[in-house]
Amino acid sequence: MSSRNVTVTVNGSTFEREVEPRLLLSDFLRHDVGLTGTHVGCEHGVCGCCTVRVDGEAVRSCLMFAVQADGAEILTVEGLAPAEGGMHPLQEAFKECHGLQCGFCTPGFVMAASAYLDEQQRADLTDEEVREAISGNLCRCTGYQNIVEAVKLAAKTMYGAS
């Protein structure tokens, strides 16, 4: 059960830590790196609260060990907003559309949706497409409709003709 050295880039900053191999990436980010915006809702890969982006892809950080992220670039909700300030268009859209209530699932939705929008790169998303895209995340407060609206609005903001 010897410790391992892990070096990861999180939101552009490099972190080097000694960790037990069994340390979950979610716990590593929250308690070793101190970025508590990534939440833990189930630790069995269903709820999606812990979704972060590893080398661009949205993944469940509760289903990865920190040692597996050695050398990876990780983006968490804290790193989504532009460095010059303000919020990311997705975050703006969630606020505008009331796409969050308690906010616990929100970082996971935002990170999953950001990966989806980056992949789609288009403004004309349908409700059905968005519902499918966010269907790996549970929300107990909103009933999802405003989240769907938020993702569509963000797509329009980011990729719509202006």
């Binding site: 890969g45 892809e57 469940r60 289903l63 999953a112 995340n137």
Partner: peptide
């Protein structure tokens, strides 16, 4: 499952 699971 879901896209996020299929990513890994």
């Amino acid at each position: 499952a879901h896209a996020v699971v299929r990513n890994r």
